[in-house]
């Protein structure tokens, strides 16, 4: 009897995972859609979100010259509001030249080492988090781009 229940549960779990894999993209929901009104209000209030302090730091870093090349992010990428729109939604991505997947932080550090000729930021360091938060901010509200839909 117990074995029968277990078999039913495993069967149910399998069917759930099959269904989960087949949700069409139009019916996928953000966790935001499941939040209560109060939680949404908190998330929508940028002045109560300490992450926005990091975004402000990142905005300052974006235009600060660094490294022996003496270039800032803005010197190549210009205004982040247009040039970085949707970028964070495409990461992590597979980097064909390096033959490995890279995330947004690694992408920023690659730019920093190759273009700015500067020492890469330490992983999870304040500056790297700030720049990632600032770049990520430009893709706010955009759906994460699935690797299967990428060219």
């Amino acid at each position: 009897m117990i074995r029968g229940v277990a078999a039913v549960l495993i069967g149910a779990a399998l069917s759930v995972s099959v269904i989960a894999a087949e949700i069409p993209s139009s019916e996928r929901k953000s966790g935001y859609d499941l939040m209560a009104r109060e939680i949404r209000a908190m998330q929508d209030d940028d002045t109560a979100n300490p992450g926005m302090l990091s975004v402000l730091d990142g905005e300052a870093l974006w235009t600060r010259k660094a490294g022996t090349a003496g270039k800032s992010c803005a010197d190549c990428h210009g205004d982040a509001q247009s040039s970085m729109k949707g970028v964070a939604a495409r990461y992590p991505a597979f980097d064909a030249a390096r033959g490995r997947p890279i995330d947004l932080e690694q992408r920023i550090n690659i730019c920093r080492a190759d273009q700015q000729k500067a020492t890469p930021f330490a992983f999870e360091s304040k500056d790297l988090l700030a720049l990632s938060a600032y770049v990520g901010r430009q893709s706010r509200g955009m759906p994460i781009d699935s690797p299967t839909t990428r060219a």
Binding site: D45, T47, A48, M52
Partner: peptide
């Protein structure tokens, strides 16, 4: 230090207004 403040730009006289401040430290 970076600070974020939220004060309503407009209010009616006598209204109770909520002020929020956040500072990096």
């Amino acid at each position: 230090a970076r600070a974020l403040i939220n004060v309503p730009a407009k209010a009616k006289r006598g209204d109770i207004i909520e002020i929020k401040t956040l500072i990096s430290h």
